[in-house]
């Protein structure tokens, strides 16, 4: 059937859920912090009703143009390999998600976060705070300029290092589409020992890795990496609701 629920005039989309073998599980034993945090009971299925198929409007008013350039902060230029990160936000029906807030955060080029909890003895950069915000355009496109984040060590296991990554947070249009994720870079030698990357089912891992783009690389300026982000869609077949009656 279609991804539509219709009862008494209330016509709602029904967002598809990927099968478990393609979704990142909430907990994964090799990622030690999940031990006391990931719920142990099976979640209860929640039908998609109005609360789940609606979502907040969080647009342009939250974002300034300079938020798309992470390389110029604190009155100077960040150290590191300058990169353009760009792509489209789509839903799994292939439709663009325009006017959507995209928030990113990352370590600096040396692998250090500007956060009190980060004690990695790598230098902080006075011209890099690691925060970016953009809103997708009418075709769902986003783009920001940053420096390539460094890998960093963490305490999960002996000699554990996170592959270079940028954290992303996206809203889409509906509560069901909310996504927080991490973008990786191609061919990272640290993939093989990272339990956070490994927790992504093998069939879906490539979706978390950006693609180097020579076409969009800017001569004498910055490398470019392309990453398309796909939110859940509804697999709707063409549909027109007839225009009668009240909402239930």
């Amino acid at each position: 059937m279609t991804g539509i629920t219709s009862h008494r005039g209330l016509v709602l989309p029904r967002y598809l859920r990927e099968p478990a073998e393609r979704r990142t599980p909430v907990g994964s034993p090799d990622y030690r912090s999940t031990g006391l945090r990931a719920p142990l009971r099976t979640p209860v299925d929640l039908p998609h009703r109005l609360t789940e198929v609606t979502g907040p409007v969080l647009g342009e008013d939250r974002v300034r143009p300079e938020d798309a350039d992470l390389t110029l902060r604190g009155g100077g230029e960040a150290v590191g390999q300058r990169i353009v990160v760009y792509g489209r936000v789509l839903d799994s029906d292939g439709r663009p998600v325009p006017d959507a807030l995209v928030e990113v955060w990352q370590a600096n080029a040396a692998g250090r976060y500007r956060h009190v909890g980060d004690s990695f003895p790598a230098p902080l950069d006075p011209h890099f705070d690691g925060l970016g915000r953009v809103v997708t355009d009418s075709l769902g496109r986003y783009e920001f300029l940053t420096v390539k984040p460094g890998a960093y060590p963490w305490g999960n296991h002996h000699n554990a290092w996170r592959p270079a990554h940028i954290h992303f947070s996206l809203f889409g249009r509906a509560f069901t589409q909310r996504l927080v994720t991490q973008m990786y870079f191609p061919d990272d030698p640290l993939f093989g020992q990272d339990p956070i990357f490994a927790a992504i089912p093998a069939a879906a891992r490539h979706r978390a890795i950006s693609r180097f783009s020579l076409e969009r690389t800017q001569a004498d300026w910055a490398l470019a990496f392309e990453w398309h982000i796909v939110l859940r869609g509804t697999d709707q077949t063409p549909f027109e609701a007839d225009d009668d009656g009240d909402v239930a």
Partner: peptide, 19 residues
């Protein structure tokens, strides 16, 4: 009908306050 594979989720990690 057209289907793309959704991007997999990941943890917000310990430094979410930055972003």
């Amino acid at each position: 009908p057209f289907r793309l594979g959704p991007t997999p989720s990941a943890t917000v990690g310990p430094y979410l306050a930055i972003g």
